[in-house]
Design a protein around this nucleic acid. Structure first.
Lengths: 131, 131
DNA sequence: TTAAAGATTACCGCAAGGGTAAGGTCAAGC
DNA sequence: GCTTGACCTTACCCTTGCGGTAATCTTTAA
């Protein structure tokens, strides 16, 4: 199957597939005309990659996951460690974003948002008094 | 004041200050020896930048905020729009991360995490049955 | 005097592809 | 046979926000 169909069937982009080949994450075969030729097995791998990426894993982490996936003598312990590590990372990001949200809400709430130049947002960012 | 002190006093890095100059966000003066020379006003601007960045604004958004800050005939409406836009963006990210967290927790919970190769995480990523 | 500390510019690198150019290939319609 | 359009190829630059390193001044302290 050619690249655009593989992209479509996996939920990835053509650019991404070519990129994954360039970093040796997934090497499809080639047809006689030089076109990339994705097998059914390649497609399953692409779907694996897509799912892992959508959960937040980096491409390098996906590489590790794929290796485990393809290794029959793996220990589920190792896969779980990757997931727990990512989970922790996600929770850290969540905390940071919640803090940002609080501050942004606070800023927005104090600003009239009218035609006047008087603006609590800018005052605060400038280090103005808090309350 | 020289660059390292300005960095220290603003909570930014020396590299960041040089970068901000290179993109014309803040142009400090120069001493006779060619060293950058940050004034007190520059320092306040740097602190403004630091606060805005820490709340999640991109450098280009900070540029807009600075412009408003320095424009006496601004309308607070414009500043508020920037904050509300950023708030929306942060909330979108929060939703995405919460979804990732749910999936990751689900994955972790189903995996024994022992010495066996049997692993629900890898099965799921491979498109295995759900429940 | 000399060595350490701090400054300068310049360039390469990251993540994860997106965008575009210049060109080969393939199938359909005339 | 010919052309057109859709699809494929490689190659190279762009993005964000700096971090790291090198080679080269300047200043400061011992």
């Amino acid at each position: 199957m050619n690249i655009s169909r593989a992209a479509q069937q996996s939920g990835l982009t053509v650019k991404a597939l070519r990129y994954y080949e360039s970093i040796h994450l997934l090497q499809p075969g080639r047809s006689a005309n030089g076109y990339r030729d994705y097998s059914e097995r390649d497609l399953e791998t692409l779907r694996f990659i897509q799912r892992a990426r959508s959960v937040g894993f980096s491409v390098e982490e996906v590489r590790d996951l794929l290796e485990l996936h393809q290794n029959p003598s793996r220990r589920s312990h190792d896969a779980k460690l990757l997931v727990l590590g990512k989970l922790e990372h996600v929770e850290t990001q969540l905390r940071n974003l919640r803090e940002m949200r609080t501050t942004l809400r606070d800023l927005a709430q104090r600003c009239a948002g009218d035609e006047s130049p008087e603006c609590a947002i800018l005052d605060r960012l400038a280090g103005g008094e808090h309350d």
